[in-house]
Design a protein around this nucleic acid. Structure first.
Lengths: 250, 250
DNA sequence: CGACCAATGCTTGTATACAAGTGCTGGTCG
DNA sequence: CGACCAGCACTTGTATACAAGCATTGGTCG
């Protein structure tokens, strides 16, 4: 360790550089979005070379993104064989459901007596948006995410949301499959309102009950779509191979 | 997509190659262990080049491992600056505590009427081991992990353990700091027995109560050690830099 | 005609070279 | 003596080259 630099100080200066606008982050977010929106369907082959060429970068950031997605369970990497978008694994979906339910219900038990006014207002606006007539499905998903996240923040455990998010990847994809059938998920919006009003009224038991009903309803959708599109689910090992789908990168 | 290979079939043949005995996996597990055991203390600088040289591999697997650890929150990467073992963030510790409590308590609510005999026997042996007189601290940690994991499997949600594990990294480090003070954590072993007997007796409420007490006791240890070793915790941005610790790789 | 098998294209894993950026250091100038 | 500033050493990010392995393919042999 000769003359040069040593470990720099560990202060908030680094927090600035935390805004990693690296190429890897861009690729990671792009791929993750395409997987969650089913633009890259379960079972699709992901070639590092092809993705790199299509995205205009080298293999390195693509590869590192795939490794991250692999740890999230959204991608499976088979050494010397290939990488694939994970099929929807019913067991993992059930796990995500269990975890999400556990966390969100525990949060409802932990609500403070005095609710944060700003968050309540944010939730109110969110619910109003959800009931807008010509609502896009993608917008509804964003609102749904924000609703549950805000509810978690209301209990002071907002940062636990990140863990839920990374765990519920499989659940999200399955939900999306289910929601593409129903034209507009008005039922879910109504359930959201029910939960919110129970929270406002301070009725923890009712809030729990409503939340559980809501989350179970989402889960039931998964089983419904599974009967319709079994090839997107795992465990049916002998199913259709789903050969190299032609992926267009606009 | 000319002549050669296409996407191979997606069958159980691949499950075999899932045994990734790659160099990256070895490096990842080594680094993760050293971080969790505090052999690489919070704040320590991690140079990709140094680690690569010490481990006898190139930068690539080291770098990819650091990226994975970074996503777990155990390592912080600052582009063009350096990588460091994350300091113990009290907020993240609290999050991990909340998440763990939510999941494990929910599992206790979900216990089947008929308990799996093999798992019960496994738990019994585990608890017997925990009360062995001259128990190593590292062994106790392993037993503790196995105990909670088995309890989760008893409720049929064993695979949710993986998420808890990755989320509770910060909690584990903090616990380890706390347990290095107390000579032998006999108190925790006794609490384990209490939980187990409540589960066997079918008393869900008592099991919940005992589990909550147990997990809260672990959490309190964190605050205790924080008063003693503040430099290992974050938020005190002006604290000691902790310069490039000399890490020996035996 | 069927079974076997080598050639070939692809895949990911690893190693290395180069690029861009940061912080310390030490000399220099006012 | 103090402030400034150029240079250097080190960092991670990215690109590329090479290595090892699997699966399909197409020919050959029985």
């Amino acid at each position: 360790m000769g003359g040069g630099a040593v470990a720099p100080r560990y202060d908030e200066r680094m927090a600035r550089s935390n805004r990693q606008r690296t190429s890897r982050r861009a690729v990671y977010e792009t791929l993750r979005r395409k997987v969650l929106t089913l633009e890259l369907p379960p079972g699709a082959a992901l070639s590092e070379n092809e993705l790199a060429a299509a995205l205009g970068v080298s293999r390195t950031p693509v590869r590192e993104s795939l490794i991250l997605l692999s740890q999230e369970g959204l991608v499976q990497i088979f050494p010397q064989v290939g990488s694939f978008v994970s099929r929807v694994d019913p067991a993992k979906v059930a796990d995500a459901q269990f975890l999400r339910e556990a966390v969100e219900l525990a949060a409802l038990d932990d609500l403070p007596a005095e609710l944060d006014a700003d968050l309540v207002e944010e939730l109110r606006r969110n619910l109003a948006e959800q009931e807008r007539p010509g609502l896009d499905l993608e917008d509804f998903f964003e609102l749904d995410e924000a609703f549950h996240h805000a509810l978690l923040r209301l209990s002071g455990h907002g940062s636990a949301w990140a863990t839920v998010v990374s765990a519920k990847g499989h659940l999200d994809r399955a939900r999306r499959l289910g929601l593409y059938d129903t034209a507009t998920p008005t039922g879910f919006a109504a359930q959201h309102v029910e939960i919110f009003e129970a929270v406002l009224g301070g009725d923890a038991a009712l809030a729990r009950s409503a939340m559980r009903t809501h989350l179970r309803a989402v889960f039931d959708d998964v089983e419904r779509v599974r009967a319709r599109s079994p090839e997107l689910f795992a465990k049916d090992t002998g199913s259709v191979p789903v050969r190299r789908n032609v992926v267009v990168w606009e």
